[in-house]
Design a protein around this nucleic acid. Structure first.
Length: 540
DNA sequence: TATTGCGGGTTTT
DNA sequence: AAAACCCGCAATA
């Protein structure tokens, strides 16, 4: 069945800078990342990355051996096991996302993006089912992932005695599916259509939980907070609405995201190279009508309040449960003016019962907010650029818009990522420490005289190098990136915080800032590499 | 019923 | 040969 792709694989990304691997390239300037999942020996490290659910792009992370998520090899993406005939490395490939055949738009402006079942049989049953949007006559169909040179993005997991190594290859070229927890919750409930009662109940419980969380706020540390923020941005705030989809439960989308004005559409940087549009003939063009855009007045149309009350100011049920409302394709344009008056958009994760306050684009851009978030009163460009490094998810690439650039169509979705990469390069530059780097490299020499990681992929052969022209001038502290109401992995976070190795807050905030959710090479890990100790793959 | 991992096997490059 | 993919099986939730 998938032989279709085999017989005519899509290689359009291969010669393009936005092809898989672009993300890792930014982090290839240090030996800290100089391991590959296939190496006969991987370094033994003592500091680990917080678990990242939505890794995207080429990246390598090292998790604690006792990380439950890592042990489960879980991912926000729908990843299925793929036999790579290597018992020591678990390989998984992305199944893409389940979308409506008509690419219908929900009243919120979002699109249907269900989580494909991992089981082939279950997935086949999913396909062809009516679109969950009652007003739509479309059918569900798989939008396959082709983010790795036309093949699905792949994840690799390797367990050692001391850590769990994770490596991803490729950049997802499709929307995120709903979170696994959401999918499971809906399945548990037995129906996808309407779960209003439960949703409201969970919303209340989540609000209570948020209150409790706030009491423990001081324990939170930057790395995980940054992770959380970036995840929020990527998952359901700036990015997904921009891309035309959200992470709300697709059967009960709760985003009250307001589509930006058409006048600000398509403001993507031009591609540095010619580039063939991925063969997603219907999907993206449809999205382009409203997605990937930015508010024309980002400075004023914001209500930077993050209070969490269970009452109507958290969400408006009429907005949350509006699947029965007629579709409003022009929703974005017709209701823009109402945006300010509306309640802070929220979404409810049915799996965790957590209410997420939508971190809207305009919020993000609002000067008052950003000044708080960055804890940095300077306005120099390098610092502000740093705000866009929170993640390399395809979604948040749209944050990296150069708003003054000429109009290009949103086919340049991937190109926007290039900009992301550029910033990531800067990030790497900031971390660039030649002395350390040399030490790391020495520690690996003789093991593998491999090509730099970023180039360790045929997709990258034509990748042009970005200069690090905008070096960071000072550390970026992000402990103010706190939005308690959005933190839905608190237990996990606490486990990280409680780690004695992370007792030093200053270290946390300086070394771990950008390791989170953006597949930043683990400079901290690098510092902990024991030059003589490696976990060797016994059989290969 | 679905997920997850394993592994034999086939096809394509 | 390597990689991608298909399929069935078993354990588990």
């Amino acid at each position: 069945m998938n032989r279709r792709r085999r017989s005519n694989p899509i290689r359009v990304f291969q010669a393009h800078p936005s092809s898989p691997g672009m993300s890792c390239r930014a982090y290839s300037n240090g030996a800290a990342t100089d391991w590959d999942i296939n190496d006969s020996a991987v370094p033994r490290i003592s500091e680990f990355d917080p678990f990242s659910e939505w890794t995207d792009g080429h990246c390598r992370l090292v998790y604690r051996a006792d990380s439950e998520e890592a042990k489960r090899h879980s991912s926000g993406w729908a990843m299925r096991n793929t036999n790579n005939h290597n018992v020591h490395i678990l390989k998984k490939s992305c199944l893409g996302v389940l979308v409506c055949s008509l690419r219908c738009t929900l009243p919120s402006g979002d699109t249907v993006h269900l989580r494909p079942a991992i089981c082939d049989k279950a997935r086949k049953k999913q396909q062809g089912k009516p679109c969950p949007n009652r007003q739509c006559t479309g059918r569900l169909e798989i939008l396959p992932c082709r983010g790795h040179c036309g093949y699905p993005v792949t994840h690799f997991w390797r367990h050692t005695e001391h850590a769990i190594f994770f490596q991803a290859k490729g950049v997802h070229d499709h929307p995120r599916p709903e979170a696994k927890s959401t999918s499971e919750a809906r399945r548990t409930l037995g129906s996808g259509r309407r779960v209003r009662g439960l949703a409201v109940l969970l919303a209340k419980e989540a609000a209570l939980g948020n209150k409790l969380m706030s009491l423990r706020e001081p324990k939170r540390q930057c790395s995980e907070i940054t992770n959380q923020i970036s995840r929020n941005i990527n998952t359901s705030t700036i990015s997904e609405p921009d891309a035309g989809y959200c992470s709300c439960p697709p059967f009960e989308c709760m985003c009250s995201y307001q589509q930006p004005l058409a006048t600000s559409l398509h403001q993507f940087p031009p591609s540095p190279t010619t580039y063939q549009q991925p063969q997603l003939p219907n999907y993206w063009p449809q999205e382009s009508s409203h997605a990937q855009a930015y508010p024309p007045d980002i400075g004023t149309s914001v209500n930077p309040q993050y209070d969490f009350n269970i009452s109507a100011d958290i969400f408006q049920s009429e907005e949350i449960f509006q699947m029965d409302q007629p579709l409003k394709p022009d929703f974005v344009h017709g209701n823009q003016s109402n945006d300010i008056a509306r309640s802070p958009p929220t979404l409810l994760d049915l799996g965790s019962g957590t209410i997420h306050r939508e971190f809207k684009t305009e919020d993000y851009w609002n000067p008052s907010i950003t000044s708080i978030l960055t804890n940095d009163d300077s306005n120099n460009s390098s610092t502000s650029n740093s705000r866009f490094n929170l993640s390399q998810s395809p979604d948040n690439s749209q944050l990296l818009i150069n708003n003054n650039l000429p109009q290009v169509d949103q086919h340049l979705y991937m190109d926007a990522k290039i900009d992301d990469l550029a910033f990531n390069v800067q990030k790497s530059h900031y971390y660039h420490q030649p002395s350390l780097e040399n030490n790391y490299r020495h520690s690996f020499e003789g093991l593998d005289n491999k090509i730099p990681y970023a180039m360790d992929d045929k997709c990258l052969q034509n990748f042009e190098h970005y200069s690090s022209s905008k070096a960071y001038t000072k550390p970026i502290y992000q402990e103010e990136y706190i939005d308690l109401g959005q933190y839905n992995e608190y237990n996990n976070f606490l486990s990280v915080c409680d780690n004695s190795k992370m007792a030093n807050d200053s270290v946390m905030f300086t070394d771990l800032d950008f390791r989170i959710n953006s597949c930043v090479p683990n400079i901290g890990n690098a510092q902990n590499y024991n030059h003589d100790t490696f976990d060797v793959m016994s059989h290969q």
